[in-house]
């Protein structure tokens, strides 16, 4: 009997590097890594045609765990670096990965403008509502009453709502996934990569070390009961009213992706000198 399908050139394993993650066993980020590699294999991309860009934080360690080209930059600036890379090299598939502190706090401004610019990037934020690498401080998505050494009485601040902000700022694809659902996460990431423009995937990814209670997220998450909408107004209402555990693709916009005004003409710099000649 013949094989039921043509063998893929590459499997998920081919996207995994031999450098082993330093994440705590139990961390949701392992699933996200597995989901990314699975999605890239399913999309039949080549590792050298994919770049994974990150900032600083536990989840931002992800580029080196793949066999893709990686860029592990400074805290909060992954989207900026990815923007430069994608505009300079539109032939590449560029993924941005990081955590809630990196993406929403120190990198908050870049998040807004990446959504607005709508460059063809996929931004995967592994949200565990805590700064893990610095040993457990509240992040923008931390609940107001969560107590820590830095905020013994809780922050008293309402949580940042990344999906609503992404929508308002102009993201073209908005999804929520849960790292306890590797299948769903892989599917969402694959779809995000395929969708043109800026695709934002928020992955609820528990921190078993500083937020062990997040293990209970697996009881709380539920798939979205309706299909993704392309109507921003409808999406806004849904996102504003959901319980934060609604997973799946929630918004798929139709805005055309940013295309840089790359010069088609290729004059030589010497040709510009005549502007200065007397």
């Amino acid at each position: 009997m013949n094989a039921p399908a043509i063998a893929p050139a590459l499997t998920a394993q081919d996207f995994k590097s031999d450098y082993k993650p330093v994440w705590c066993p139990g961390c949701g980020d392992y699933t996200v890594l597995a989901s990314i590699t699975r999605a890239l294999a399913a999309l039949q991309l080549r590792p050298e045609k994919v770049a994974v860009v990150s900032g600083i934080g536990c989840s931002s360690r992800i580029p080196a765990y793949t066999t893709c080209y990686g860029f592990h930059g400074v805290h909060g600036r992954a989207l900026a670096a990815a923007t430069g890379l994608k505009v300079a090299r539109p032939d590449l598939t560029v993924l941005v990965a990081g955590g809630d502190g990196d993406g929403y706090s120190i990198g908050g401004n870049h998040f807004l403008h990446a959504c607005r610019r709508n460059i063809d990037l996929t931004d995967i934020v592994m949200d565990n509502h805590v700064y893990g690498m610095t040993k457990g401080q509240p992040s923008p998505t931390t609940e107001p009453d969560w107590k820590s050494k830095l905020s013994p009485a809780g922050t008293g601040l309402r949580e940042f709502h990344p999906l609503v902000i992404a929508l308002a700022a102009g993201a073209n694809f908005i999804a929520r996934a849960f790292s306890g659902d590797p299948s769903g996460t892989a599917a969402v990431i694959g779809e995000a990569i395929r969708h043109p423009g800026f695709s934002f995937v928020e992955v609820l990814s528990p921190c078993v070390t500083f937020r062990p209670e997040q293990r209970a997220w697996k009881e709380a998450v539920h798939p979205a009961s309706v299909a993704a909408t392309d109507d921003p107004a409808r999406a806004a209402r849904r996102l504003m009213t959901d319980d934060g555990f609604n997973t799946g693709v929630l918004y798929k916009g139709t805005r055309p992706a940013y295309s840089a005004a790359a010069g088609k003409t290729t004059l030589h710099p010497a040709d510009l000198e005549k502007d200065f000649a007397l």
Binding site: F71, G73, G84, A88
Partner: peptide, 11 residues
């Protein structure tokens, strides 16, 4: 950071 990204891409 954008120029770092672009340079990383070879430009």
């Amino acid at each position: 950071n954008m120029i770092l990204g672009a340079s990383y891409g070879g430009v």
